[in-house]
Design a protein around this nucleic acid. Structure first.
Length: 297
DNA sequence: CATGAGCGA
């Protein structure tokens, strides 16, 4: 380490020089593509110096591609209508467009569509926006199929695949329990409905979420939350679902709620007990809910 | 007073 050598202490010195007090007061490009900048600096002797630069920008074939350079000839429109070609530096800046893609989980790895998926896509295009029920071929969504109760026995995707695949009897290597999931997606054991004796998840008879015994609770205060009602009604038994009617915009409660139970007797009991009960500063009213008005599309 | 939301081949 020779102490004699005076070296630049850091790269910051260079930066300082580069950022010497310089003020660009004019910056324009004329119709010939000549950029003129006027700047004032203060030199080391404290004198102000005016610097005018005129920079002729030739088309840089190594930088600007032909098709990009071609755009300079396009007629301007909108607020720039009638202005000379090329970017006007008074109104145009160069920026970078950064796209930030957020995704839940790691599903962002979209795979290339497989040939069969392409076929499906084309079928869809041929249908041109028509909705076809996968269950009964009606013009409604599958979820709304009127026959979904009578035909619901079929296992989701299996029958659909039959259209695409020749009837090959050699099933892919499926473990004994997962026979019904040969379609591909993993289905947790608790969700596999096929195995008759397998899951206790199907407690009792009803697997439908729609036919749960549901109570309508009215006269709830507008700041009542789902959890409040769940706590209240949870005293009588298992609460399957709680919904608080809210204003779409403000989120404030609209004064009513629905509470669904697993068991109808429990719901009955809860209704009797909670009806007339004071809650916040109001008196709750509880009755059986009517099924939702039919929604058809 | 008061009867829910969303998904989409």
């Amino acid at each position: 380490m020779a102490p004699t050598a005076i070296q630049k202490t850091s790269w910051a010195d260079d930066i300082d020089e580069l950022e010497a007090p310089t003020k660009v007061v004019e910056d324009s490009v004329d119709e010939n593509g000549i950029r003129t900048t006027v700047e004032y600096i203060t030199n080391e002797k404290g004198k102000k110096v005016k610097i005018t630069r005129r920079i002729k920008r030739t088309l840089q074939k190594s930088v600007v591609e032909h098709n990009v350079a071609e755009r300079k000839k396009w007629a301007k429109f909108g607020q720039e209508k009638g202005h000379p070609p090329g970017p006007d530096r008074a109104t145009t800046t160069v920026g970078e467009e950064l796209s930030l893609k957020l995704s839940a989980g790691n599903k962002n790895a979209e795979v290339e569509p497989t040939p069969s998926q392409n076929m499906k896509t084309q079928l869809k295009a041929a249908g041109a926006g028509k909705v076809v029920c996968r269950r009964c071929s009606g013009d409604h969504f599958t979820a709304k199929c009127p026959y979904k109760d009578t035909l619901s026995v079929l296992n989701s995707s299996d029958t659909v695949m039959d259209d695409d695949l020749p009837p090959s009897d050699n099933a892919p290597p499926a473990p004994s329990g997962g026979a019904s999931t040969s379609g591909g997606k993993y289905v947790p054991p608790s969700m596999r409905g096929a195995g008759r004796g397998a899951g206790e998840a199907m407690r009792g008879t009803g697997s439908n979420r729609d036919d749960l015994p549901t109570l309508r609770v009215t006269n709830v205060s507008e700041d009542t939350q789902e959890n409040d009602l769940r706590d209240l009604f949870g005293n009588f038994g298992r609460v399957a679902r709680v919904y608080v009617g809210r204003d779409r915009e403000t989120g404030a409660g609209k004064g009513f709620a629905f509470v669904s139970f697993e068991d109808r007797a429990v719901a009955q009991k809860a209704m009797e007990k909670v009806h007339g009960m004071g809650y916040d500063n109001l008196i709750l009213s509880v009755q059986w809910s009517q099924p939702r008005p039919e929604q058809r599309g």
